[in-house]
Design a protein around this nucleic acid. Structure first.
Lengths: 210, 210
DNA sequence: CCGGTTTTCGCCTTATAATCGAAAACCGTG
DNA sequence: CACGGTTTTCGATTATAAGGCGAAAACCGG
């Protein structure tokens, strides 16, 4: 996630099935690890991504013909890094705007879109924003992130109020330097916690009392 | 799902790792099928379940030690049948109350609980009720189903209003025979559609206008 | 016809989200 | 240093969704 675009880390395939096309980082599962530790290992190995704030299972992709040759079952994951992390990426690896994906290898485009959809819905009913935002941020910066991820303009006013009421947003007291064009300096905020947690408005039909 | 309890179909293992314990139906993935068709096949083969109204991926369970011996990666699914289906089950297979699970094989208890949680949350923000309810039902019957699945008493009044406003509930015009104790005969309803669809109140932060 | 029972419906309250506009706090310039 | 231009912030108001409650409706058996 850079400033105002939702992005995904892809790398050019160096091997032959679909050589040269962009593909998601990944690799084989070792016999002594579960899928999540495998994913974390692969991210550390192949790309230098520090500060992975969130990792979650996305879905299994298992179409017998999703890759040429013998069938390969893939367990796709969604992993998020803050917008200010934007790490050095190794050779043949680039961040791509999810809205303008290049030609991808295999079914990776479908996987990316699924991940995007997952992110979109979870942004609304969880605190997942913490995984995209820097440690400190202004409301309008946050607005930018949410807009980019969700795909539509969100109101800064409303975003602040909703997140505040949910107790997710805490003011740091600090204030950001005003932009080159002047304007009131923005207050800095940070997210309350770091693990993902859903925000109840879920349990419609109400738990007994409360 | 029987009347007022959330239930899961388990069968006694006939083979040795954990012989005799209750386990989820399942089996190996064939090289020419994807995981979902595999699940549907297995359900048809091993248990005579007609009217499977919903099937969705739950999660991958891949702990290296989840089963003794060489590691087995499992892709767990959530499948739902209407409460009135309650099919004939073959030998060594039984419906078990999810609230009072017996000793299960491997990590199957964890899987069942995960499935239960998934069902619970989706009941609130999707039309997934259609997969649990008969084609026609009274509001109080539906209330029973939701209460059992969610684990807390839901108000029939509110349930009806919420589902109606969402356009999920349509009156059939028919009316159910009153119970043995008398009382006003209940109107019969049915769900609007059959595929799962999420009910927007999701997109908080608002799509532009509307 | 009458009490007992269950369902249905309307009215009211609460919670959450969205809209709007004005005030606050900064810039650079004359 | 007052001024327009700019961006952020905040309060007041409206809209929408959900929950509580009780009265009315519609059936039973006697």
């Amino acid at each position: 996630m850079r400033s105002d675009t939702l992005r995904v880390l892809l790398w050019r395939r160096a091997l032959d099935p679909h050589l040269g096309r962009w593909s998601l980082p990944g690799g084989r599962l070792r016999p002594d690890e579960d899928v999540e530790t495998s994913v974390r290992r692969q991210l550390k190995e192949k790309v230098d991504v520090r500060r992975i704030e969130h990792v979650e299972q996305l879905a299994v992709f298992s179409d017998p013909h999703r890759v040429p040759g013998p069938r390969v079952v893939a367990t796709a994951f969604l992993a998020l890094v803050p917008s200010d992390a934007d790490p050095e990426v190794p050779e043949d690896t680039e961040w791509h705007d999810v809205a303008k994906l290049p030609r991808t290898a295999f079914d990776h485009e479908a996987i990316v879109l699924r991940a995007r959809d997952r992110l979109r819905s979870k942004l609304s009913y969880t605190n997942l924003g913490f995984a995209l935002a820097p440690d400190e941020f202004t409301i309008s910066a946050l607005r930018g992130l949410y807009s980019a991820a969700l795909g539509y303009r969100v109101s800064a006013t409303n975003l602040q109020r909703v997140l505040s009421r949910r107790g997710l947003l805490v003011p740091t007291g600090h204030t950001a330097p005003p932009g080159r064009a002047g304007g009131r300096p923005a207050a800095l905020f940070s997210f309350a916690g770091k693990g993902m947690q859903i925000t109840d408005p879920f349990a419609v039909f109400k738990p007994p009392n409360r």
